[in-house]
Design a protein around this nucleic acid. Structure first.
Length: 882
RNA sequence: GGGCGUUUAGCUCAGCUGGUAGAGCGUCUCCCUUACAAGGAGAGGGUCGGGGGUUCAAGUCCCUCAACGCCCACCA
């Protein structure tokens, strides 16, 4: 750590120059490395692994910052702290990226074949794997890169196989033909949570199906006419009298001529449409259930590309047509042949692929599923009995609601990049074996499907700790992890599944607290997205304002309720300005330390101001600890901002300037300045790691710790509590403020010095004498005289009433006394209003009977105080007016 | 259809367990006072969405209405 000459420090903090240098210092010294053999209590977090294809965005910046704050706080608070970094192989996303690259060369993945394609994808992955974590370094993330993991690395893959086989053996994984959400573009099944519904303006078409052998027909309403060739029946409600005659009869599918029966099923809603529904088991989840109940074989008419199948049931002229083209053509022909009776506008929800936005095709196909109901039981219990706590707790409801209605999880994906399902089929008999390894490569071939990326993510908290080796040092020391930090958008995708798998395979909840933060939005409250072009690049912000500025601003915007956060470029000025304030205040302190190299404050020599700032520091430390422990991280930022800027800089440093000129207290003042700066930097370090480290390293002879990031985090100390003196300081503030107010009100330049007379009762006079120097310097007072006369005539003066005393500022030619009267009247009015409402309370017998004693006392005391001040001001006005 | 969230100063938002409202930015006045103009000092600004209730006391608890936003489910 190169130490700069203090006098050469620039007056404007140069964040970008400092930050990378500081990060390197930490990294080179291995300060982020956790020791699994340590005797300290563990604190661990696993990063929500960003996609390898990802580029750092504001969401990461927030998520990583919050984790880093928790990690740094606990590291400084005596925990052996591990933050595991890593990335997600992101099956489909990564495959798409590589396929796009191939497309540029005019190739498809099929041209390469599975093995070559995987080779290429690994190549791409290895090239990009560290990009996003390297970007996280710019965020100051203190994760342990020596433990970096990848959801598709050897260890994670072993864990996946182990879990898959065990679940299968327990009967919790099965393979079967069910309706799944099929994305025709991705060419794969996707799970329910990956399907997003959008309301679209569509149509409801009423189509007539002629009854066989009769002149009548049944009219069916549908939103998807292209599936008519897959119909296996028409269903009506059993109690629907309109149709009771028709049940059991046969109708003819228009255009194709295939014959199907009319059946009765409770699923049908009599009041919707025409009350008659076409049943297409291969292409609709509800129809599939109806079909099963009535023993119909499904008929596929749309293929995996979303095109009409070239099969016997589909008339040849439609073969190979895209589903939407087919729809138009079918409607045209139905209309031409008078089968289409009516077209109504109809608003309905259409499923879209979360990844690419393509309309989902519900498709009956053979897929692998995890039976979730039995697994969910323990996961529900763990949250209900408090083993896992959500912050804010309203997300528990959300989680439980989903878990209690959990549906089976479709885990197979028809892609190549991912964990290939460990099932093997006999080449001849087709017999299936589920095992970690191929039992006999000569005769068995592996299942071609891969697993949903979230399958491996679900194991992340324990697969990264060496599981299935439960004897590994990391697993023993750091599993279960402590806190999980993430956004609410992946509670179902990820959090719920980690809880489920963690409990099933380790018997322990994978973390005890789930800290859910809001999402980052643009200044209008819209979600940031590349397509909208409203994204803000964290790296650009860091270059412009600095990492600490970014962190501080974002942290200060975090609310306890976990609201979404709206940001714009300019908001980061807040953090930048604060960083600059820290820089300059620190510069002042360092320049005035004269090499004072310890924090050995002489408690017998403390001035009232010293005691006040120590007391304030102490209560700030107390609150910061409580706030972080309770995940009130935004509050932490506010408390520290207020303490550092308003208490330390605006008051204490100004007062210290006076004390430094007094040889009798100079050294002690330097020590207090130093101590408070040192402790405040530590308190700020989790939020603003770089600047605090840089400044801390410049404080003379910091020998106890190598870095602030390893220093002890300040906690509340009884020895630093000075309640009485802290209260006395209020008199200083009040006095100075009211004198400044007088100056400003009458437009008196700071260059003009006052003489003042303080009319004070005995007990207050002593305090004023003790703080005289502060008043003189900070309110630009030349000379102070005292009087014990409290009842006096005021002439040609402005007066400030402070506590029980009156301060008279003679201003003969400087002011307009009508203005002074007006000023005093305004004050009087304020006091009168306050008094009225307080008296209203105290005169209410019910208030006296019910309110706590100390509230009654303070109310009475306040009325008393107002009373004296009112009397004083009234007299002033009287004597000024005469 | 069910659930959740939001509504507080011109703007963006804080306000934990109920005790007469706070910050940042912006506005108005002064000031380049030897750490900082990314700064200092002072000032102005709110019937806390509407209505009702509980309480000595409500922005804070309960009910209700309204607007906006989100999540889940889903009728072809």
């Amino acid at each position: 750590m190169p130490v700069t000459n203090i006098n050469d420090l620039p007056t404007v903090y140069n964040a970008s120059e400092t930050e990378q240098k500081i990060y390197k210092f930490w990294e080179d010294n291995g300060f982020f490395k956790a020791d699994s053999k340590s005797a300290k209590p563990p604190y661990s977090i696993v990063i929500p692994p960003p996609n390898v294809t990802g580029v750092l965005h504001m969401g990461h910046a927030l998520d990583e910052t919050l984790q880093d704050i928790l990690v740094r706080y606990h590291r400084m608070s005596g925990y052996e702290t591990l933050w595991v970094p890593g990335t997600d192989h992101a099956g489909l996303a990564t495959q798409n990226v590589v396929e796009k690259q191939l497309a540029k060369e005019g190739l498809t993945r099929d041209d390469l074949g599975r093995e070559k394609f995987l080779e290429k994808t690994w190549e791409w992955t290895n090239q990009h794997k560290s990009t996003i974590l390297d970007q996280c370094k710019r965020l100051g993330a203190s994760f342990d890169r020596s433990r970096e993991r990848f959801t598709f690395d050897q260890g994670c893959s072993d864990a996946v196989k182990e879990v898959f086989v065990r679940l299968y053996e327990k009967g919790l994984i099965y393979k079967g033909a069910y309706i799944v959400n099929w994305c025709p573009r991705c060419q794969s099944a996707i799970s329910d949570v990956e399907t997003e519904y959008e309301t679209e303006q569509g149509h409801l078409w009423e189509i007539s199906y002629p009854v066989k052998g009769e002149s009548g027909a049944i009219i069916v309403a549908t939103t998807r006419p292209e599936t008519i060739f897959g119909d296996v029946a028409i269903a009506v409600h059993p109690d629907d009298h309109k149709y009771s005659e028709l049940v059991g009869k046969t109708v003819v599918i228009p255009l194709s001529g295939r014959e199907i029966p009319i059946i009765a099923d409770e699923y049908v809603d009599k009041s919707f449409g025409t009350g008659a529904v076409k049943i297409t088991p291969a292409h609709d989840p509800n129809d599939f259930e109806v079909g099963k109940r009535h023993n119909f074989s499904p008929i596929w008419v749309i293929d995996e590309q979303g095109k009409m199948k070239a099969c016997g049931e589909v008339p040849p002229e439609f073969h190979g047509l895209d589903r939407y083209e087919a729809r138009e053509k079918i409607l045209g022909m139905l209309s031409y042949k008078n089968f289409l009776l009516r077209t109504k506008d109809h608003e309905h929800n259409v499923g879209k692929c979360q990844r690419c936005g393509t309309t989902i095709e519900p498709l009956l196909s053979e897929q692998w599923f995890v039976k979730m109901k039995p697994l969910a039981q323990e996961a529900i219990k763990a949250v209900k009995d408090g083993r896992i706590k959500f912050i804010p707790d309203r997300w528990e409801k959300n989680y439980l609601g989903w878990m209690e209605n959990i549906r089976d999880w479709c885990i197979s994906r028809q892609i190549w990049w991912g964990h290939q399902i460990p099932a093997y089929y006999h080449k001849v008999t087709g017999e299936m074996v589920v095992a970690k390894e191929n039992p006999d490569p000569q005769n068995y071939v592996q299942e071609t499907d891969c697993l949903d990326t979230w399958f491996s993510s679900a194991l992340w908290p324990f697969s990264t700790m060496g599981w299935p080796d439960t004897k590994s040092d990391d697993f023993k020391k750091f599993y279960p992890t402590t806190t999980l930090v993430t956004g609410f958008d992946i509670i179902f995708f990820w959090v719920a599944r980690m809880i489920t798998m963690g409990l099933e395979f380790t018997g322990k909840a994978p973390f005890s607290t789930v800290y859910i933060h809001g999402l980052i939005r643009d200044e209008k409250g819209q979600k940031m997205s590349k397509s909208k072009g409203n994204t803000i690049d964290p790296v650009v912000i860091i270059d412009k304002y600095g990492c600490d500025a970014l962190r501080f601003t974002m942290t200060s915007l975090c609310t306890f309720g976990g609201q979404d956060i709206k940001i714009s470029d300019e908001r980061f000025e807040y953090g930048r300005n604060f960083a600059n304030k820290i820089w300059n205040a620190s510069r002042f302190v360092l320049m005035n330390l004269d090499g004072v190299d310890n924090n050995d404050i002489d408690f017998d020599k403390l001035t009232i101001a010293d005691k006040w700032i120590l007391d304030k520091l102490n209560s700030t430390a107390k609150e910061v600890n409580e706030d972080i422990q309770n995940y009130r991280i935004g509050e932490t930022a506010h408390v520290l901002y207020d303490f550092f800027w308003n208490s330390y800089c605006d008051w204490y440093v100004e007062i210290a300037k006076i004390q430094l000129t007094d040889e009798s207290v100079k050294l002690n003042t330097q020590r207090v300045l130093r101590y408070v700066l040192d402790m405040t930097l530590r308190l700020l370090h989790p939020i603003m790691p770089h600047i605090t480290e840089q400044v801390w390293q410049l404080i003379p002879k910091q020998t106890d710790f190598k870095a602030i990031m390893l220093a002890d985090f300040p906690i509340y100390k009884e020895s630093l509590e000075f309640a009485a003196e802290a209260k006395e300081m209020e008199l200083v503030f009040e006095t100075i403020k009211s004198l400044r107010n007088v100056r400003q009100s009458f437009n008196i330049s700071m260059a003009v010095n006052f003489n003042i007379t303080i009319h004070a009762p005995k007990e207050e006079k002593a305090i004023f004498e003790a703080i005289e120097s502060y008043i003189k310097r900070m309110a630009k007072v030349e000379n102070i005289s005292y009087s014990d006369e409290l009842d006096f005539e005021v002439k040609k003066s402005a007066t400030a009433v402070v506590s029980a005393s009156k301060i008279v500022i003679p201003l003969e030619n400087l002011i307009d006394f009508n203005e002074e009267i007006a000023r005093q009247n305004k004050k009087l009015e304020k006091l009168t209003n306050e008094r009225k409402s307080l008296e209203g309370r105290i005169n209410n017998p019910k208030f006296v009977a019910n309110a706590p004693a100390d509230l009654i006392n303070t109310t009475k005391a306040r009325i008393e105080e107002i009373n004296t001040q009112q009397t004083a001001i009234s007299r002033l006005i009287g004597s000024l007016s005469s």
